[in-house]
Simulated scan of single mutants.
Amino acid sequence: MTTPSPRTTPRSGPLAGLVVADFSRVLAGPYSTQLMADLGADVIKVESPRGDETRDWAPPERDGVSTYFLGINRNKRDVVLDFGDEADRELAHELAARADIVIENFRPGGLTKFGLDYDSVAALNPAVIYASISGFGSKGGAALPGYDLIVQAASGLMSLTGEPDGPAYRSGVSVFDIMTGMQATIGILAALNHRNNTGEGQHVEVNLLSTALSAMANHSSTFVAGGQVPFRMGNAHPSLFPYEPLAASDGEIVIVAANDAQFVKLATALGLAHLADDARFAKTELRNRNREELRPLLLEALATATVAEWFETLTRAGVACGPINTIDGGVALAESLGLEPVVLVGDGDNAVPMIRNPIDFSLTPPAYRSAPPALGADDTEIKDWLRS
């Protein structure tokens, strides 16, 4: 008796029945495939004998496994294939031929010598949706290494991050890796819809630099539409005030007044209702231009109470605001709001606490079937299926 095809493995979710051959590693690709796995796709993670390098990116770790790896690889099955070995390479070809989706983030052209590039796979599987993730695209930037930090620097993001008179800073998160993983998922889902209508597979390409320029939205538009180069403003917003942390008596609280009505609420709650009628501050553009006159007036009022007290007072008044938490505080806030941010994935003592998928569905919710797999955890099952 042969092992059943993963296509027939019972699963739930809007992507149930789809098989994903995951030839990606590190962050952007694995984040994309975890999203699809949560939604029911059967994701088969293919690793070299050395394994995904993030398995070793520690500390921190949990039970000897990098928490980096754990955070982006749940709900997947795992097989080790050495593309340099002929027998393993043939199994990789067979997997690509049977998959609905193939996703990879090798340097452009890196899979050609193994016969696993788009053209080769499409010849075996014309209906395949094949997604490629790179740092700088497959044209002039094909040879450039695609690390998130390099793209943060080269795209201009770091020039926007930090104090005006200080050094440029990277984001505290590999923001363009994550965003590019999301863009890959959007592209794959759009291509699946096209295939459902036409039967045609296609090649989906995303890269970190294009994602970065798109994601910097208003800043990119400032240059391409307005002819101005944005600059570092610390925590300030170029077009709104207040829209930044402001000091209370024991720390800082983020306060947002993004329109005139919101500013009226803020001024009233601070006991400064007259400022809403002040000719210098009555309109968004005026508050922005006269922020250095307005800021000390707000700070004087805020100094009379603590962050916690102002958070309660301003929230009750309908003012958008929030404390500056560490991540544990962010998780606690989500818990207090009933968002249930943490799920246990896996069974018994091997269950791993993870952040839940952020999407809610009324009929087909995400499922948390299995903890991130050990290297080669499903070798026998997957290889037997591919040979059958």
Rank of each mutant, 00 (worst) to 15 (best):
S32M: 13
S32L: 14
S32E: 00
T33W: 12
T33D: 07
T33S: 12
T33A: 05
Q34T: 06
Q34K: 11
Q34Y: 06
L35Y: 09
L35V: 12
L35R: 11
L35P: 00
M36V: 06
A37T: 04
A37H: 08
A37I: 09
D38A: 08
D38S: 13
L39V: 05
L39Q: 14
G40E: 04
G40V: 06
G40F: 09
A41Q: 05
A41W: 07
D42I: 03
D42T: 05
V43I: 03
V43L: 07
V43W: 03
V43G: 05
I44L: 15
K45N: 10
K45W: 06
K45T: 05
V46F: 01
V46T: 02
V46D: 01
E47S: 08
E47P: 05
S48T: 15
S48H: 10
P49A: 10
P49E: 09
R50T: 13
R50S: 14
R50A: 15
R50Y: 02
R50I: 00
G51Y: 06
G51D: 04
D52Y: 10
D52W: 09
D52L: 10
E53T: 14
T54F: 13
T54M: 14
R55K: 13
R55S: 08
R55C: 08
R55W: 11
D56F: 11
W57S: 06
W57T: 10
W57E: 02
A58C: 07
A58T: 15
P59V: 13
P59F: 11
P59A: 13
P60R: 10
E61Y: 07
R62S: 06
D63S: 14
D63Q: 14
D63G: 07
G64T: 10
G64A: 07
G64S: 11
S66T: 04
S66K: 07
T67F: 02
T67Y: 03
T67K: 03
Y68C: 09
F69P: 05
F69D: 00
F69K: 09
L70Y: 01
L70V: 11
G71R: 02
G71N: 13
N73G: 11
N73V: 12
R74I: 09
N75L: 08
N75P: 11
N75G: 09
K76V: 12
K76F: 12
R77D: 13
D78L: 02
D78W: 00
D78N: 15
V79C: 01
V80G: 02
V80C: 07
V80D: 03
L81Y: 01
L81A: 01
D82K: 04
D82V: 03
D82F: 04
D82G: 09
F83A: 04
F83D: 06
G84C: 05
D85I: 00
D85M: 03
D85L: 01
A87P: 02
A87Q: 15
D88P: 01
R89Y: 00
E90S: 10
E90G: 04
E90L: 11
L91V: 03
L91Y: 05
L91A: 07
H93D: 02
H93R: 12
H93V: 00
E94S: 14
A96I: 00
A96M: 09
A96G: 15
A96R: 03
A96Y: 02
A97M: 04
